[in-house]
């Protein structure tokens, strides 16, 4: 059972009050009509699904009914932070920067997952643990 800190209610509440809503920080294309099929399909369906740090959107469904974000480890399930919509994560933010890098398909050495935030980042955890 997760105990989740809602950044709007500013309280720890039980998991059952919330609904997970998938990967966070996915921007809707400004002009959908101008998108190629590839871009639009990527936006709709393709997700990072990392084994490790994951930024995800949750809804406080039976509380304030607001969306907010959680940074969570998908292996240990530890909640590393919760933050409001429009804010940026402080833990594992380098993961987001990955998007902007031109991804090299020639990953001959085998890509490593960007797991594990620095200890300093972990110490600044605002949320509660799983």
């Amino acid at each position: 059972m997760f105990h989740i800190y809602c950044p709007y209610c500013e309280e720890l509440r039980e998991e059952e009050e919330f609904h997970p809503k998938g990967q966070a920080h996915i921007a809707r294309p400004e002009e959908p009509d101008a998108c190629s099929d590839e871009e639009w399909g990527d936006y709709l369906f393709f997700r990072d699904n990392p084994r490790g740090i994951h930024h995800e959107m949750w809804l406080h469904a039976v509380g304030c009914r607001k969306f907010f974000n959680i940074t969570r480890n998908t292996v240990s399930y530890e909640i590393l932070e919760t933050y409001k919509m429009g804010e940026q994560p402080t833990v594992g933010a380098e993961h987001l920067a990955r998007e902007e890098k031109t991804s090299s398909v020639q990953a001959a050495e085998g890509g490593q997952q960007t797991v594990g935030a620095s200890d300093a980042a972990l110490a600044s955890v605002k949320g509660a643990q799983a």
Partner: peptide, 18 residues
């Protein structure tokens, strides 16, 4: 469940959630 992890090793992205 580990398909996305494997795909990322090849620089691929999949429309999956585990």
């Amino acid at each position: 469940g580990n398909s996305s992890v494997l795909a990322s090793m090849a620089g691929l992205n999949l429309p999956l959630e585990s």
